[in-house]
Nucleic acid binder design. Structure first.
Lengths: 343, 343
DNA sequence: ATGAAAGCGCTAACAA
DNA sequence: TTGTTAGCGCTTTCAT
């Protein structure tokens, strides 16, 4: 009735538990005789034996479980990342505990405890702030840790990021090629490395491309959501009504920008072109189709998971501190030539 | 450097580990003296003690972890459900291990093992098939289990479902009210209880409302996805070209129907009206806006989690075998009056 | 090649 | 009120 343990299998075969343990462990240092292994495995199968990973973990300090911290699973940016992570973890016998911070640092702190109490072998952090003492501390104490999308500043926690610089430059160049001269930027929250980095990239790229930026037409959002995108877009347009192109730090801000523009009676792309970042799902089906910078979400998850496993199981060789994934400009209907004849 | 244990706290305070254990356990049967508790808690705090739930779980057979099985996290139907589950679990100290089956029974079997090896206290199954011997077996062995959205047939596993019957009837009546007479149904896979149930509801409701159904205009999909929705829609229209209304068993099928129609040069809703089921996110932003039956996803998650906890921690009172959540018709642009003057 | 024994960190009788 | 003890199921060193 109740779950059989090693002891039950041992009794069944008439050997000691340690023999059973060894027979079932493919990398046992002193495996039993082949014939014995067969008998033991047969009995284990027959009894429906399943190892108790809690007990094993208590002994070995390895739970084959990793924690994944994201801001919010209902944000469609994250599920593909999670599938990427799972795709490398699961075949190796690892399971993931996924937690949502909702962007609240105090919640994040508690969740870090939750994960650590469960003895996770490592954490993939997809929601880290630029400064996060607790995460820094845990990494220092030896907890294997990898950040994804964002990075923790002044730390040597390996991170997997997207090529923000290239992406922003592509988007800006695209707007320029369409003839746009007056361009604004709805920047991401500066507490995230992505917000800061993309803002810096915007400034660098506009200098490089010779585009004049009105400082007031660069507005940082306080969250990565549509409401903030709309609010900031209003400010951008107010700062410089001649603007015909708005580059947003991510897709949700851009979706908000679209709303704000139509609210003002402006048409996209006829009056104002808009670009996003990430290429979250469904964008192609939402008119007018957001032009955006596609990041490799599944790959990013895979890469982060591989890095984490390397840290956990590797032979101590240092892993690359930063892996930058390539991005790609996806052109859709939200960007168009300046002064295009509209319907 | 390394994580302090009960023993460390005990040594610090100069008491026995069991006293520390009791001091930290709010429902200890024999708690230490108040003053002692204070001293112990202070020391525990000071040392940064965190309980090791693995060890506790090994002892108590309770891990404060539950498993959640879903088909695919990238399907936007599921994240809100997960947040609902989390919203009741997390405050109580439970964590969730989420796994994706991709609709593959063999994968599901393996994942059930994964969860059980980790000693989950219970499982919320959001991807169960109508027949699933392994799940039935585990429930019989006493593993607390609740199914969500779908139900396992011939079993007494408690389930949280939506009012499929009412939803389908609402949708059908809505089409009828708009003047539609020739109506088809893209049914869900019959391996899922939702597919079967909604199909039955469609038949019942059409009889009740006096709508004549051409049997060939009822086509079951083999998966809940857009491709199948499109394929089945083709078959439906071929079965009866006079059809002006298609009721789909879920939103993704309906999205596929929309594609198939436009492929055929038919306009929605001018030529054919379409309805879905679930009201997944973003539907309002995708033209023409799918009319659909909204299910309470977050609530469903909450309800399932509460039921599971009741089974795990309750005083053995039986929990309701079935909780049916109300649904609501959301009317958008994909349904319109028959023969409407189009642009 | 196999068995014995210790112990991971914790809880819960039972004893004092 | 507090300490002692045993043991959850497993791994692993050491002995045979």
């Amino acid at each position: 009735m109740k779950k059989p343990t090693l002891k039950d299998v041992a009794r069944e075969v008439g050997v000691h538990v340690s023999s059973v343990s060894r027979a079932l462990d493919p990398n046992a240092r002193t495996p039993p005789a082949d014939e014995m292994i067969l008998r033991i495995k047969e009995a284990a199968d027959r009894l429906g034996y399943r190892p108790n990973r809690l007990a094993a973990g208590l002994r070995t300090k390895r739970t084959m479980t990793v924690g994944v911290i994201i801001p919010d699973i209902t944000n469609t940016l994250f599920p593909p990342i999670l599938r990427g992570i799972e795709s490398v973890l699961e075949p190796l016998g690892y399971a993931a505990i996924i937690v949502n911070t909702d962007g609240l640092p105090e919640r994040e702190d508690r969740l870090l405890d939750v994960l650590q109490e469960r003895g996770v072998d490592g954490i993939i952090h997809v929601a880290v702030l630029r400064h996060d003492p607790k995460v820094a501390q845990m990494a220092r104490e030896g907890l294997p840790l990898v950040t994804l999308n964002r990075r923790l500043e002044n730390s040597d926690i390996p991170c997997v990021t997207n090529d923000d610089d290239a992406g922003i430059e592509m988007a800006l160049r695209h707007l320029m090629d369409l003839g746009h001269v007056h361009i604004g930027h709805v920047a991401g929250p500066t507490v995230f490395s992505t917000g800061k980095q993309r803002l810096a990239a915007f400034e660098t790229a506009s200098r490089k491309l010779g585009i004049q930026i009105v400082p007031a037409a660069v507005v940082p959002a306080s969250r990565y959501d549509e409401t903030e995108g709309a609010r900031c877009t209003d400010l951008v347009m107010r700062a410089n009504p001649r603007i015909t192109g708005i580059l947003c730090a991510n897709d949700r801000l851009a979706l908000g920008a679209l709303e704000a523009l139509s609210q003002k009676g402006l048409s996209c792309p006829r009056d104002v072109s808009v670009t996003g970042f990430n290429d979250i799902p469904f964008l192609d089906r939402i008119p007018p189709g957001l032009t955006t910078v596609r990041t490799e979400k599944f790959e990013a998850g895979q890469t982060a998971a591989r890095l984490l496993l390397e840290i956990i199981n590797g032979d101590g060789n240092p892993v690359p501190p930063e892996t930058v994934l390539p991005v790609k400009l996806i052109i859709r209907g939200s960007t168009g030539p300046i002064g295009a004849m509209g319907a």
